[in-house]
């Protein structure tokens, strides 16, 4: 497994020993050693993956770095949070993804409809297996527990991802729209029930 280490709150150092790491394109700020770079795309493999990517408007360009050395990754001075996965699955907003172990399986899943009227679908990226995921957070990320007696409501702009046996629902609320205001334009909030952990950032998405 590749070694993910935070050089500081905003810079991820990945040490490769004849290994490969996948990272958000353009996120590398420095490297040393013998590293080869290749282009890749997030969102599942094969024809089905491509179809879902098109439907979801996902397909974030990725860069694979392989070889032996250290690569330094950062994005817009956002803080970095490293999330270890132990044969688990994480659902993550692709715009929050910074890097992940090559050994993790990626997929794109249908998360629900954005609005009854628009019918526009929402897709989320999943990563599954044993390895590490690095996410970016504007400000320090917060981990919030969801349990059966403690459902959680989250602004979609602040949502980074979740793991565990968690159900995600879209709640449409007239007051919510008044509350969130014109800036975001989102007329729904996210409701999480079940048992697991939700990651949020103290910011609206840029």
């Amino acid at each position: 497994m590749t070694a993910f280490r935070l050089e500081n709150k905003r810079l991820l150092e990945v040490t490769l020993q004849n290994e490969r790491v996948m990272a958000r394109a353009g996120s590398m700020v420095a490297y040393d050693g013998q590293i080869k770079f290749d282009k890749s795309i997030l969102g599942g493999e094969g024809l089905f993956g491509a179809l879902k990517r098109r439907a979801g408007g996902e397909g974030m360009p990725l860069m694979s770095s392989s070889g032996t050395g250290r690569v330094y990754l950062a994005e817009n001075a956002a803080e970095v949070v490293v999330i270890p996965l132990q044969q688990e699955r994480i659902f993550i907003e692709s715009s929050s993804l910074l890097a992940f172990d090559d050994g993790l399986r990626t997929n794109t899943v249908f998360a629900g409809l954005r609005g009854a009227t628009s019918g526009q679908g929402l897709f989320t990226t999943t990563l599954e297996g044993y390895g590490q995921v690095a996410a970016i957070s504007d400000g320090t990320a917060i981990q919030l527990e969801v349990s059966p007696h403690d459902p959680l409501f989250v602004d979609p702009d602040a949502f980074i991802g979740y793991k565990g046996d968690v159900r995600q629902e879209f709640v449409f609320d007239v007051n919510w729209k008044t509350f969130v205001g014109q800036s975001s334009g989102e007329s729904y909030q996210l409701k999480f029930t079940g048992q697991g952990v939700v990651y949020i950032q103290p910011s609206e998405r840029r």
């Binding site: 917060i142 919030l144 403690d150 459902p151 959680l152 409501f153 989250v154 602004d155 702009d157 602040a158 007051n175 919510w176 008044t178 509350f179 969130v180 205001g181 800036s183 975001s184 939700v198 949020i200 950032q201 103290p202 910011s203 609206e204």
Partner: peptide, 13 residues
């Protein structure tokens, strides 16, 4: 407005 990022409990706005 727009500064709420998450909440637990029974809240209305």
């Amino acid at each position: 407005k727009g500064k709420m990022i998450a909440y637990y409990g029974a809240l209305r706005f």
